[in-house]
Structure formats: structure tokens, C-alpha cells
Amino acid sequence: MCHGGWCFEQLTRRLRGAGHTVHPLTLTGLSERSHLLHGTVNLDTHIQDVVATLEGENLRDVTLVGHSYGGMVITGAADRAPDRVRCLVYLDAVVPAHGDSCWSLVSDQERRWYVDVDETGCASRVLPIFDARATSHPIASLLQPLRLTGDLGHIERRDYVYAAGWADQSPFTTTYQKLSADPGWTTHALPGGHNLMRDNPDELAAILDRAASH
């Protein structure tokens, strides 16, 4: 939420140095694309952002990485482009099923943040702790339920990377514990805060390297 592809800069540099092709995306209505924000920018818009990149760059055997809200987006993109996506990595993120929304998966604390909309009336405000480049986030993308057409059975590997260093209680602890007991998932815990790509770029790059090379 509220961030752009620039938040992955340290991680992108490390992965490219290891020989990977990396496409850090800024979703419609955010950061340097904030001029595209309007009331109809929703989850489908953001899923299409990813699918359009996969198709436009003719990418295959892709590992999609979604941070936080981005778990909604990569799940939908994998469903819509099954012939292009091989692996999903949820980076301290929501893990939705069909019919879930970001709103339905988070706590009341996050919901209170979401409904504190800015002067546009259609976007959740930036939190004071965010990078100065962050911008308001289209609230429709948080409210819209995810619609899946399949079971994502084509995905060869699913990883969950949990941030164990939240200053207060993490909203993702239950998700991490559940997936740790699921043999269909590979789970990891890193000591940093929610923005693991900033706090733990080396460890995270190693995890992504293994996932992409699986």
C-alpha cells in the first residue's frame, strides 16, 4: 500500500547481481503513477497492471513477489496468467482465497486506517512512518473481493516470508503459523520489520534466489 517499485531498490540490485531479471512494479494510482488515481482504480486494476507486464514483456516461468497488500495482487495475477507464473512469494502479506478482500483479512486497526480517506474521498492516507515518496492508496482496491477462476494448481512453489520484528503485534502471525504447518508451503521468518526488503535485503534476496531457482 502507498508505495512504488522504488521500495524494492536494494532487493532489486541484489537479485540482478545474482543474474535474475527483475521488474519492480508501481501499481496504478500510486507514487509516480499517483496522477492516475481515481475512484474506479481497484484490485482488478492492479492485477491487470501485473498481467500486462507479464504479457508485454513476454515473461514466463515467473516468480511473483507480493508485499503486504500485494498478496492480493499476485494471487489474482497468477490466476489470470497461469501459463506465465510458476512461483508465488508472499512477503509479510495477506494470502487470499476466492471471495476474500484485503478488508476482510486484516484487523480492525488496519480497517481504521483504510477508512481515513484523504481529500479525494477515494484513497487511504499515507501513514506518518512511510517514505516521503509514498502516496495515498485507492481504497476500492482494499474493499473489492478477489475473484478466482481456478485453484492455482499450476503453481509449483509457494513461499511465505514472515517479519518477526514488528514493533507491536503483527497482523500476519496467524497466517504464518497456519502456513508453517502446511506441507504445500515453504515458510521463513526474518527478524526485521514489515518492510523486509529494506530491513533484511540480503536474507530476503537469498530466499528469492532459492525460490526462483527451484
Rank of each mutant, 00 (worst) to 15 (best):
I47H: 02
Q48Y: 00
V50G: 02
V50R: 05
V51W: 02
A52W: 14
L54M: 10
L54N: 13
E55G: 06
G56V: 01
G56A: 08
E57P: 01
E57Y: 12
N58T: 14
L59S: 12
L59F: 11
R60W: 10
V62R: 09
L64Y: 02
L64T: 05
G66L: 10
H67A: 08
S68A: 15
S68M: 11
S68R: 13
S68Y: 01
Y69K: 10
Y69M: 03
G70Y: 02
G70P: 02
G71Y: 05
G71V: 02
M72P: 12
M72E: 08
M72W: 04
M72S: 06
V73K: 05
A77C: 05
D79H: 03
R80Y: 00
A81N: 05
D83Q: 15
R84H: 06
R86Y: 00
R86H: 13
C87A: 15
C87R: 15
L88E: 09
L88D: 08
L88V: 07
V89T: 15
D92A: 08
D92P: 02
A93W: 00
V94Y: 02
V95K: 08
V95G: 08
P96Y: 08
A97L: 11
A97N: 14
H98Q: 12
G99L: 09
G99F: 01
G99C: 10
D100E: 08
D100C: 11
D100L: 10
S101K: 06
C102T: 10
W103V: 02
W103S: 06
L105Q: 11
V106W: 09
V106Q: 11
D108E: 15
D108F: 01
Q109M: 12
Q109A: 13
E110C: 01
E110D: 05
R111S: 07
R111Q: 13
R111T: 04
R112E: 14
R112L: 12
W113Y: 05
Y114K: 05
D116L: 12
D118C: 09
D118S: 12
E119W: 07
T120M: 11
G121R: 09
C122W: 15
A123Y: 10
S124W: 04
V126Q: 12
V126A: 10
V126I: 07
L127A: 14
I129K: 15
F130P: 03
D131I: 06
D131P: 00
D131F: 09
A134P: 00
A134F: 12
S136I: 01
H137E: 13
H137V: 03
H137W: 08
P138K: 07
I139S: 04
I139G: 05
A140Y: 03
S141L: 00
S141H: 07
L143G: 11
L143V: 04
L143A: 12
L143I: 06
Q144N: 10
P145W: 03
R147K: 13
R147Y: 08
G150N: 13
G150S: 15
D151E: 15
L152F: 02
L152D: 02
L152G: 08
G153P: 13
G153F: 00
H154K: 01
H154V: 04
I155G: 09
I155M: 05
E156V: 04
E156C: 11
R157F: 01
R158G: 05
D159Q: 07
Y160I: 04
V161H: 01
Y162D: 07
Y162M: 07
A164T: 00
G165I: 00
W166K: 01
A167T: 14
A167C: 06
A167H: 13
D168N: 14
Q169L: 14
Q169A: 15
Q169P: 02
Q169F: 10
P171L: 02
F172N: 10
T173C: 09
